[in-house]
Design a protein around this nucleic acid. Sequence first.
DNA 1: AGGGTTTCGTTGAATGTTCAACAGTGGTCC
DNA 2: GGACCACTGTTGAACATTCAACGAAACCCT
Lengths: 163, 163
Amino acid sequence: MTTNATETRWLDAEQQRSWRAYLVGTTLLMDRLDRDLREQHDLSVPEYEILVRLSEVEGRRMRMAVLAASVSHSRSRVTHTVARMEKDGLVKRTACESDGRGVEAVLTDKGMAVLEAAAPTHVAGVRQHLVDLVDEEDFAAVGRVFNAVTDTLIEANPEADIR
Amino acid sequence: MTTNATETRWLDAEQQRSWRAYLVGTTLLMDRLDRDLREQHDLSVPEYEILVRLSEVEGRRMRMAVLAASVSHSRSRVTHTVARMEKDGLVKRTACESDGRGVEAVLTDKGMAVLEAAAPTHVAGVRQHLVDLVDEEDFAAVGRVFNAVTDTLIEANPEADIR
DNA sequence: AGGGTTTCGTTGAATGTTCAACAGTGGTCC
DNA sequence: GGACCACTGTTGAACATTCAACGAAACCCT
């Protein structure tokens, strides 16, 4: 045989350019969105994402584990994040009735108000620095690509991925 | 007039799905690549990126600010990261001859060896969890998109962006 | 030459994230 | 019903990143 299983298939020049653009672009983009949200609404991107998730469900409440899975952060991380948000009054925690172990995070009125104030800022940023910059078709491709990534990585780390 | 400047143009359902897929997918992907590199080579992704940058230039040495700009991290962050890497013997720092303020990071032989060992792992991961998962054309679109993102965000924060 | 400004890289503290260990509850099996 | 195992969410320490402030060197201007 002329090849073996350990032989590396490198990226070609074009793929490498794309990969690096993604790495650097993501760094700059997240940095910028985070900065804007912080300066104008005293909120980080992870915190904002949690507000969004909670605002979308019936009763504006979610089990911690579900919340963690939905943003793909570790349970520990969500515990810390929610603790900070609770201190700021954006969220409160209540025991779960049906499961003695469970805790539900509930969006407060203040949390909802902060979200409503922050959302326009955030969306404007996402448009200005990403969506409005590129072909609709190219952006759709980004969606396909990262849906594929998400699907395989969630499979890999079966459902209770959460980590 | 029926609209004003502050009216928010929300993302449509499709754009929103793409945006969230990108957020979640990026989280999972980076997490996974980082984990693999850590477990197998005791290296984080940011550290790996620095090794790559250094390995590519003449003399395997770079001014700290140039290095920072090339990975789009803050100077402070690169100072800390390089400090850790220096402690591990992957890199060493030398004063810059032409500029008394300057410091150059130099890749050591050990650093080069670690990079050569880690590269196949990393590339395999990038392929397995991203590149090989999707249409070549879609991946090229990702490249175009994030090149656009990078370009506008670098402009915005003129060159000495570095932060 | 000399004062003001800018750039360089570092520092230490504040903030955020990861990691391993844990207590408490639920589920299962006999 | 008790032993065992799995799951939930939290905790505190270790680690990484951000942020503001800084000293030193270079630059600029006259």
